[in-house]
Design a binder for these strands. Sequence first.
RNA 1: GGCGGGUUAGCCAAGUGGUAAGGCAGGGCUCUGCAAAAGCCCCAUCGUCGGUUCGACUCCGACACCCGCCUCCA
Length: 463
Amino acid sequence: MALRFHNTLTRSQEEFRPLDPAGQKVRLYCCGPTVYNYAHIGNLRTMVFFDLVRRHLEIRGFHPQHVMNITDVEDKIIRTVQESGEPLSLLTRRFEAAFFEDLDLLGCKHPHESPRATEHIPQIIAFIEKLEKKGVAYKTQDGSVYFSIEKFPCYGKLSRLDLNQLKPGARVSQDEYARETYGDFALWKAHTERDGNIFWESPWGRGRPGWHIECSCMSMQHLGETIDIHCGGEDLIFPHHEDEIAQSEAATGKPFVRYWLHSAHLLVNGEKMSKTAGNFFTLRDLIEKGFTGREIRYALGSVHYRLPLNFTLEGLHAARQALHRLEEWADRLHACCAKTQAASSGGLLAGFLEALDDDLNISEALGSLFQIRRETSGQMDRNELSAGKAAELWQDWKQIEQLLGLPDNPAQEAPADVTALAEKRLAARKAKDWKQSDELRVEIQTKGWTVKDTPEGYKLTRA
RNA sequence: GGCGGGUUAGCCAAGUGGUAAGGCAGGGCUCUGCAAAAGCCCCAUCGUCGGUUCGACUCCGACACCCGCCUCCA
């Protein structure tokens, strides 16, 4: 079966075929971070999803061109700047760097390009002028420019919202200027006192871009007027992506995006994790609790992207254990195949990829992996697994590890004092002095290490 | 109120019109000086009520509860 994705636009699963006539190049745009604070792991779950989309495309022979915007001017950024006094670019560069560090810790590939909104102001202005010429944008008295959704008849096709049916009394925007129609959205926001020195000159006076326009503009500049895949969190469906479609398609008359992919939220105690709710963990919080990027990556990536992921420390422990068993198995395979080269794939990879072809069905993929893990563990116990087969499986595993983006755990060399204790214990065991041996094991444990006895001698692991 | 999504064992979770993958936790056993690690085994009838069907957890219809979106949001 071919690669299929669930397209939010049609709310159904569709076979993926890129626009490229050769069927190789894939224009992939992902909605990136707003850099005014550390990302929380809900944000990062989405990044892990993006990374899986990309890696799976790559392993299936496509050549994705991956672009992710950096939103470095926006209301909350400006508020933070005004409160802290730190210059805009210092603040945003600091958190942009932190964001990329997080990607590294989680083994997410960096996008090929990560354009910043503030470095595309002239293009954004040109884009808005184009919309004005098309007659779908209008300037208000205060010098802002709005998009008129009445001029775009398919407005609402992505979110399937009927703007006339909005709940009365639902959140009404605070930044009401003189919009003609409720639902019109800002392309350009006029400068106000609150913005301080953050503004750009434009044909409409001083101001800054609206939130949605940067994605349309940079997507088009870096990938073209119609792109293949646009990814984001599901909360962006409305209004962000709806507005992107409106302004982009109004400007070009062409379809903006062919496949819209949205990931579900990460929940804490059944509620959406968000900065405003205050119920969030950053990656740094979890690393401090002793989890590795590899474990966190597995935990974030092992639940299907369109399902809410209820995040718990228990879940992280489960991820740690599951990974550990895979690693033990892989080590045994490696020892078993020693010097043998794999002649071909062991079939493990093929099954894994087929599962992922089905809208990235990670659960089925992992299920098939664990099933083979168990079968072949038993075979190794009974000495029934050939070196050739072990080599094939090992090779498949290494590819799956890549596909899952599992970063290596930090090197764990036991410190000299711990090694010395282990050596002392080895001697005690040889002398069959079990009492001293056990005392030494406890002592090693209190230093944060676990000693295991294997036929080849002792093995130290982080407790 | 509108629009989406969900409800499978203690927890996470796949899946099919013919009697439920996998992971974590738990229990038993093997191995081990004892452990650890590893292996084997055990552990659900799929939210409720109706309907269609020879047969539904899987199809249809109600209902209940949960979550998200309805212009801060990944």
